[in-house]
Write a protein that binds this DNA or RNA. Sequence first.
DNA 1: CAGTATTGACAATATATTTGTCATTATGAC
DNA 2: GTCATAATGACAAATATATTGTCAATACTG
Lengths: 147, 147
Amino acid sequence: MSKAKQLHGFLWLTRPLMQRVEDMVRRGLEGTGLTVRMRAVLEILDARGALSVPDIARALEVKRQYVQLMVNDVIEAGLAEKRDNPRHRASPLIALTEAGAALISEVLAAERTRAGDLADDFTEEELETALRVAERLTGALSDGDRT
Amino acid sequence: MSKAKQLHGFLWLTRPLMQRVEDMVRRGLEGTGLTVRMRAVLEILDARGALSVPDIARALEVKRQYVQLMVNDVIEAGLAEKRDNPRHRASPLIALTEAGAALISEVLAAERTRAGDLADDFTEEELETALRVAERLTGALSDGDRT
DNA sequence: CAGTATTGACAATATATTTGTCATTATGAC
DNA sequence: GTCATAATGACAAATATATTGTCAATACTG
């Protein structure tokens, strides 16, 4: 099989794979009161600390107006809170509350456990290669069209 | 880095990667009059021959009611047509017209060219591994939850 | 300090897709 | 064959996931 054909096959697997991943995540969220979009906000605040709404939007690659909705969700749920932003009086930083930090840790730990189970079926080299290919491909496709 | 962590990283790359793939496809469709959802129908009819609407729905893993809309699009554009279905009088087979067959061939050829360009940055073994991991992972995640 | 960019807040719109329903048609058990 | 059950088309409504538009307040740059 040609490389082009292999890559085409890989590219078209990304959609069903992504859907299954999101379904898995959604199941992991059952009982937590979280939605997938709330989880995304909590995860990035957990990884990067307090951020403003536009910061989160850039990280998630969605519009800031939509991030406002996501952030409103988590604030309303008591999982994050606004803090003064020294760099912009009217644009507060969004930070995890204790409850939010505890919840996202728990969720991520459960996901890691599940990922560990799945990872048992692969060698470290396979996973390393798959990750590297996906990363480089994502980068190449971000640059815009060269064709 | 642990295998679980590698896999977790890979899983979370599927969404941005898929979005970039779809953007690439969308750009390839400019000027053809096709939408991504029309392209999906044409592709599967090209690969598998005439199918009924529910057959397409099962293949694409979306609801048959939505496939009806997709199929209406391509029929209205003259790219596919209804044919008698020997197995179900009221559920016609959907088949590519000549115009539809020509158009999807052209689109797929352009995509394969683009995939070939991207594939140049990888070895055959890398692509083979990435494809295999993605396939097995998709399969594993289809079975439902084992965790 | 003037002009431009960023931000929050809120409304409207778009896109993709699912869910609900009903009448028609097929299928399988008897 | 007949009856219950499932599959299908057609159409409407609802839902999820965003984007786009707009305005006033705030920040940044020359």
